[in-house]
Simulated scan of single mutants.
Amino acid sequence: MGGLKDAAGSPHYMGHRDRLRQKFREAGPAALHDYELLELILFRAIPRRDTKPVAKALLDRFGSFAEVLSAPDRLLMEIPGIGQSVVTELKLVQAAAFKFTSDQVKNRPVLSSWNAVLDHCRTTMAYNDIEQFRVIFLDKKNKLIADEVQQTGTVDHTPVYIREVVKRALELSASAIIMVHNHPSGDPTPSRADIDMTKQVADAAEPLGVILHDHIIVARSGHVSFRSLGLI
């Protein structure tokens, strides 16, 4: 069956696509609903079908625009109408977001660009479905040397090897570090294990001339800073 067509004989969704693109051009992304932004992304991957039901199904399943982009490939492809081409488009947008926030941090004193650091951490980690531990290494002027994932764990635990964190800081001639990890549960509240590990890293690094500036936990519901909480 050919599906609904407009007066000119084109599929009904083609006019909708033109109107949505025009709305984006004229009013900007703030004027669009999340499902409409998803539709715009899906247009290229699904050229001959109405994308609105697919976009809404994605949001119903994962909850938000950011969570759709961060969802694992295997879960995305459980949604009817989603194949590898759609997953690739979504992951390209996610990669662009990662690149944008990363570039906002580069070549700038990190401590004076703290909101950019937080945006980068939230974008890259807050919606992951497994725990990840990363370290941001800084030079004497608090500029970024490296931003590296150190460990990847399970849904509620990531092993942190204190010696490896300090060793890597010395290899990079870093003067300071910021540790970051995510809580897939959605609650960024630090656990007792998080607090103990943070103190152990700080105690091991400081005699070697490496300062632990902060430990940030990110999650879907927000973030916490150990320094702000008085835990460092």
Rank of each mutant, 00 (worst) to 15 (best):
L4D: 02
P11K: 10
G15F: 00
R19Q: 11
K23R: 15
R25K: 06
A27W: 04
G28S: 08
H33S: 01
E36R: 03
R44W: 03
R44A: 06
A45R: 04
R48N: 14
R49D: 10
A57L: 11
R61L: 03
L69E: 04
A71Q: 04
P72C: 10
L76N: 09
I82Q: 05
Q84R: 07
V87L: 03
K91I: 03
K106G: 00
N107I: 00
R108V: 11
L111K: 12
S113I: 01
C121N: 10
T123S: 10
T124R: 15
Y127K: 02
N128H: 13
D129K: 10
R134W: 02
V135I: 12
V135G: 05
I136E: 07
F137H: 08
L138H: 08
K140W: 03
A146D: 14
E148S: 10
Q151A: 12
T158L: 04
P159G: 01
V160Q: 04
Y161F: 13
Y161D: 13
K167T: 11
K167G: 11
L172T: 06
I178V: 15
H181G: 10
P184F: 13
P184T: 14
S185R: 07
D194M: 08
D196G: 07
M197W: 03
T198A: 08
A202S: 10
A202I: 04
D203M: 10
I211D: 09
I216A: 08
I216M: 15
H223F: 14
L231W: 05
